[in-house]
Amino acid sequence: MLQTEWYELQQKGKLSDEDVAVVPDLYLRNRQLDGIIQQLRKDLEKAQEVAEKAKNTWDKLRKERDFHRMHHKRVVQEKNKLVVDIKRLKKHYSHFEPTLKELQHKYEVAMKEKMLMRLERDKLSHKVESLERTVKADVPKRSLPSPNQSGGKSQDKKISMTHAETNKENANEDSVLPPDDRENPFLDSEFDPPKVENMSLRKTFKAHGAAVSNICVHPRKPILGTCSDDGTWRMYSIPNGDLIMSGDGHKDWVSGMDFHPRGTHAVTGSGDGTVKIWSFSSASCTSTLRDHTQAVWSVAYHDLGDFVVSASMDHTAKLWDTATGRCQQTFRGHVDSVNHVTFQPFSNNICTASGDKTVSLWDSRSGLCIQTFYGHLNSVTCAAFSLRVGNQCDSCWLYP
């Protein structure tokens, strides 16, 4: 009867799906609930572990934050202390700065006087030697009787006055270039190649307050000449690096320097467009040459010392007479700045290196271009001659 009524109610749809489903066994239901409870407990334990790790990580980060905060405060305190010490040292140093400048000036003056004394000593030694040779040559003449002593004295006085007048006239005359048929004494010389593997740095010293633009070596003494963008030129003894002499007079950077072949003078070229000749005996500028319209890049002495050649940004090179200070020749032909100039050894030819990527060889007498060398891909910055081969020109170039 119960089953019949259950079936009728199921057919009529009066029972829900849960009522119609098979009634589970109580034991199975309890087992399912126990499994769910165990799974929830495991999830709870994992969540507790994750929370504990997060708590430990937070504590660690908080400690590190406190540590870095304390370290930052300590660094700030040390920085403030260092700033105070630096200010105190600067104030303390400012009291000694005038003394240091005065000592440096005295040192430079002393080195200049020392160099002048050396030059004076060399000059006197040469004069003594020449007097000794003159005395030795005059000894046989003095042994002979003189027919008229008063006439001889007046004649000597007249000759000396004539020589003085001749020298005065020659000082106003232009120097003459030597003949072209001079022989090069180095043509047959043999030079041992330098052993590059034995070379090493000997000494480094600060020469100027700005960039060093050029250096040259004294022809007779271990002296190095330097010029700089600070507008000065200086001479140092090598290899000790002691300051011997310094000169300032240019209004802009000094780009070129060269020594006289006898080592008595120096010539410098500057960005102010001038060329200056300096005398070591008087420690002063003896001549200023001003024909260039733009900066002078390079200068060089003739091997006899009577002429100076200069290269300029105004696309020209000029030949100067050192005795009169006049420009004897202007070399035109480059279409860009003339960066370097040099004399061909024991000849009257000069070589110029230009920003128009060419190297030119010029005749100093006529001012005409003998030969132009092409092939560089960019500005030519330097040119040099070989001493052994009179007609060999080696040039170097540099990409900007």
Rank of each mutant, 00 (worst) to 15 (best):
D19G: 09
Q32M: 13
V50P: 09
Q39S: 13
A21I: 11
G35L: 15
D34M: 12
K14M: 05
D43E: 08
L15G: 01
E45P: 00
L15H: 01
L44E: 15
D43T: 12
D25T: 06
V22D: 04
L33C: 12
E52P: 05
E45C: 04
R41G: 07
K53F: 08
A47K: 07
Q38S: 12
L26K: 06
Q38A: 14
L40S: 05
K55D: 09
A54G: 03
D17S: 06
Q38R: 05
L40V: 06
G35Y: 11
Q48G: 00
R41Q: 10
K46M: 13
E52M: 13
L40E: 07
L33H: 10
L40H: 07
V23F: 06
Q32A: 15
Q39W: 09
A47W: 04
K42F: 15
L26N: 06
L44G: 14
Q48A: 13
I36R: 05
V50A: 11
Q32K: 12
G13N: 01
V50F: 12
A51Y: 06
D43H: 06
K53P: 01
R31F: 13
A51L: 11
A51I: 14
L44C: 12
E18Q: 02
A51W: 03
D43N: 10
L44N: 13
R31S: 12
V23I: 06
D19I: 10
E49C: 04
Y27I: 09
K42E: 14
K14T: 00
L28E: 11
G35Q: 07
Q32L: 15
D43S: 10
L28Y: 11
G13V: 03
D25E: 05
A21N: 01
V23K: 06
R31Q: 13
Y27S: 10
L44V: 10
I37K: 04
V23P: 01
A54Q: 09
Q32Y: 14
Q32R: 12
K12T: 00
E52F: 03
L33E: 14
R29D: 14
D34K: 11
